[in-house]
């Protein structure tokens, strides 16, 4: 089986790798490149634990052949922030109690980022809609949505729409 040479930008770094035709992006990331932050929950696109950003959009890395990311830009949770410099979403997830078991967290963070990148001030409904492909069994989603909303608000220096909602 001929290997395929691909080049793509992973977390801001250009990478060249050889992949088998049937290698999935999730396995390339986890097993070859050691980026285990991206999780396998169902393997069939039904849970979103494997979510990464492909050219800025949230996608299921368990459903993508690695060969397809040739020429693309991929961001995983490892590219979002680090111990020293957390992404605002990561800070908010910690502060708001959006993390319980943490298995859905990396995918959830990336779905949130892909939303905020195109819609800096989403409503709670829009947030819920955008993370609907990321299953969480622990939190009931409330604190996850709170965390995303908090970042959206901070970004715009606006009065938090949640507070406004609670005041109704």
């Amino acid at each position: 089986m001929d290997k395929i040479k691909i080049q793509f930008v992973l977390n801001g770094e250009t990478r060249q790798v050889e992949v088998e035709p049937d290698l999935l992006l999730i396995d390339l990331l986890r097993e070859r490149l050691g980026l285990t932050g991206t999780k396998v929950g169902c393997g069939e696109g039904d849970c979103g634990a494997c979510t990464v950003l492909l050219n800025g959009k949230n996608v299921n890395s368990c459903l993508l052949l690695a060969a397809r990311v040739n020429g693309c830009e991929v961001v995983t949770v490892e590219g979002l922030g680090s111990y020293d410099k957390l992404h605002p979403l990561q800070e908010a997830f910690i502060a708001e109690g959006a993390v319980q078991c943490g298995f859905c967290t990396p995918g959830m963070l990336l779905s949130a980022k892909s939303l905020l990148d195109v819609n800096a001030r989403p409503t709670r409904e829009e947030i819920a809609r955008h993370i609907a492909g990321n299953l969480c069994r622990c939190t009931g989603y409330t604190k996850i949505i709170n965390a995303i909303e908090k970042v959206a608000c901070a970004d715009r220096h606006c009065a938090c729409s949640r507070e406004a909602e609670e005041g109704r």
């Binding site: 696109g45 949230n58 779905s111």
Partner: peptide, 9 residues
Amino acid sequence: VGSPQIRHI
């Protein structure tokens, strides 16, 4: 259709 992830690809 599906989820945002599915709709993206």
